[in-house]
Design a protein around this nucleic acid. Sequence first.
RNA 1: GCGCCCUUAGCUCAGCGGAUUAGAGCGUCUGUCUUCGGAACAGAAGGUCGUAGGUUCGAAUCCUGCAGGGCGUACCA
Length: 572
Amino acid sequence: MKQELEQAVSAAVKDLFGADVSVELTRPDEQFGDYATNVALQLAKQVGKNPREVAEQLAGSLREKLAETVKSVDIAGPGFLNLTLTDKALTSVLNAQPAKPLEGKKILVEYSDPNPFKPLHAGHLYTTLVGDTLARLIENAGAKPVRLNYGGDVGLHVARCMWGIIHDLWGELPDKLAAIPEADRASWLGMCYVKGTEAYESNEAAKAEIIAINKRVYQLHAEGDHDSPFARIYWTCRKWSYEYFAVLYQQLQVVPFDRFIPESEVTPLGVRTVREQLQKGVYKESDGAIVFEGEPHGLHTRVFINSEGLPTYEAKDVGLLLTKWQDYHYDKSYYITANEQAQYFQVMFKSVEQFLPEAVERAVSMTHGVVKLQGGVKMSSRKGNVVTALEILDAAREAGKETGTNPSEETILAAVKYAFAKNRIGGDIVYDPKESIALEGNSGPYLQYAHARARSILAKASDSRHSEQSEESTQQILHSVQDDAELEAEERGLLRKITEYNEVVERATSELMPHHICTYLYELAQKFNQFYEHNRVIGDDRKAVRLALVQHYADTLKSGLELLGITAPERM
RNA sequence: GCGCCCUUAGCUCAGCGGAUUAGAGCGUCUGUCUUCGGAACAGAAGGUCGUAGGUUCGAAUCCUGCAGGGCGUACCA
């Protein structure tokens, strides 16, 4: 409907003024109409006329051309055109199929990216949810996204943890690992990591040992060593890490990843490529390291291979980018990480652009903010108040218990996911467990309830007269609004809001900003509650229309929640 | 120092070129209703959109300076 109207307006503009303008219809305040456009203001200058005059002419033409679907065309303010659809036309929007702009596209989405041998903190939970939602949006738009999860199983952080492990075991004694209870594995690894990190920073001898361990880990991969005591420790603990990640993903109920790419898998290709491109002058030697000089491009210089001859994150990421390109030849490849890596990606991309521009052109780094606690305190591992990913879920459960309503696990998840989804991606977010689980306000549980409430009406209605098919619903509304029979104000208000759904999803998808969906769903629920407060459904003369409206409302809310990875239970 | 990002009601956030009323939620205050699930509805108070300029018919939205905050800035990821 929106597109048809835009075309009609743009055709009218062409007829009257011979001008080409991109017409964009917006949703104005309900009191003004269903759609609005400012083309007259844009045109005024081009045509050399006063905007109101332009608007008058356009309005006249549109009233004639769109008599079928538009009830009124009004001119407001300096020259805005407000279009109000007939109830029948507005109802027909319910039949519109959502656009599939990404049909047939191959899109990679890399997110979550936890490092084996390191704990999962609150930021991992956030980045996992952001990625999961974006991938859902992309899938909803018709593409088949490839969900990738990349993680550092080689590198200095691994060496620090390995150092801690070996010290805690009093030697390279893999058999002693069996003594660690399964439930304690993750926290034990976390403890070893902290130990190793502290030693690295404060103890020169330990630092040298850790650097040596770092080399041995790379070597172990190069040789395919699975049998030496050192290797047995490494592989066992790496496996434990992946098992620990799986627990989080399982609890979060995110869509499973298509592929886990450990850094060790792409490291050789990255190193080889950087060395090759060193010969071609893309990378340069400097102080024994291999770097990319970013300054000529307005960026900064970064080390890709350090003076020990070992690859840094940079070289590995070059290997990852090439691996993605070779394996998928993607149309688009998204990297979802925290803001602190934003400029890093620019440098890494710029370097690869020098020899593989087509792969970089289609790669996009999207970054999000940091998770903070109430009061805006940043979570810091240095200060020891690091909050782990699983602790966020526990905090929500705890807050749920305190409400006395004992929310289900399904509602706990809704609370957490919605709290993280409702803010625009990019800024830091403050997580407040109490607010997220709150029974009132803009929260996940509120929306689940708003859905369950509507379903219970539908269930009650179908008790009294068998099944209520959703296909019939549109017909029911259509039928009752034919022959100029009109909808009542609150019915129409709810219907209007429901018809915005596809437009909101399209916007959220094109901008990759799922929070628009949250804002919309909350408004939708409010519209429903307004309607519901003043209008009886069952037992009223207008039962058929109203039941159909409730049906569409519930279905719309459910679809929206699903895009956010939130379930919509029938009852709570 | 340089680069990137941020600054909207007491708090948490939408809005990101348009409609002289800048929107929500929470919190505060006040009403409605013996409810097809009240986890509701109606209303009030609360903001010179960090600051100073500029562009524009029109700026919270674009540009520039300044202040405050965050992140990055060579061998971490």
